[in-house]
Amino acid sequence: MDAWGRGTVICMSIIRARQLVHEYIRRDEEGNVESISTALDHVDLDVKQGDFIAILGHNGSGKSTLAKHINALLTPSEGTLYVDGMDTSAEENIFPVRQAAGMVFQNPDNQIIASVVEEDVGFGPENIGVPTEEIWRRVEESLAAVGMTKYRHHSPNKLSGGQKQRVAIAGVVAMQPKCIVLDEPTAMLDPNGRADVIRTAHELNREKGVTIILITHYMEEVVDADKVFVMDSGKVVMQGTPRQIFSQVGKLKEYRLDVPQVTILADLLRQSGINIPIGVLTRQELVEAVLRAAQIS
């Protein structure tokens, strides 16, 4: 397969963006173009089926725009985007694309439609015409997958932020997507809720083989991802394993991001001449590195 995804080899990519461009056009009252801002600037991106992907970027870096493209809520101004082999710019692909790639949004309140948890989970399957008995089966399975079965008869208003987000995830899972895009799902949550949501995403990835695309600016959430993309002003500016990404502390700071505390500390120690390997990610790793350094000295 060549760099453009053409070739005879069967493509394993569930998401494939080629020179994807998105422009927001702002018009004045007469309909004249007032300004054009480029939210996505010739993005090339491949996501392998079954991976856990993280997309990092500061607010306004274009990562949410990218997420909306994957769900066909937006269509490319230029370039192409294939989701599970379907061109998102084709009108007839809109619903299959949305079914293949589900989406969880930032604000937990603004994406739950029904007044009862289980009915909300059933909303997606209802829309795509799943038979009643099958809806019930899926609702049960999805609620169990996110650990919210206990709350199925509750009103969403009585749940915590983290619980609401898990209901939202269940609502997407019930549509049996191949891929779930989570657009800053933890930005409005407290640390406990955050941990719950991230754990749920990992479980879905591991146990159901769902491809996860996690968009976030919390660095701790990225550590366990298979691959990380960093976005800045509409471009993918870095990509690699978490270790590769976090070994470039200075560059991340430039992109208005930060790194986990242990990584910063390891970096500072290394700069001061202590023998610590590059790209330390976890506490465990740093403890071991420091102890090794202590033995040598």
């Binding site: 909306k68 769900n71 809520l73 619903f95 949305r98 079914q99 589900g102 989406m103 949004f105 604000n107 603004n110 994406q111 439609i113 909303f123 997606g124 829309n127 795509i128 609502g171 997407v172 549509m175």
Partner: peptide, 12 residues
């Protein structure tokens, strides 16, 4: 937000 979330879940 809600309209977008409903669309994302194939509401039509």
């Amino acid at each position: 937000d809600l309209a977008m979330a409903m669309e994302a879940r194939c509401y039509h």
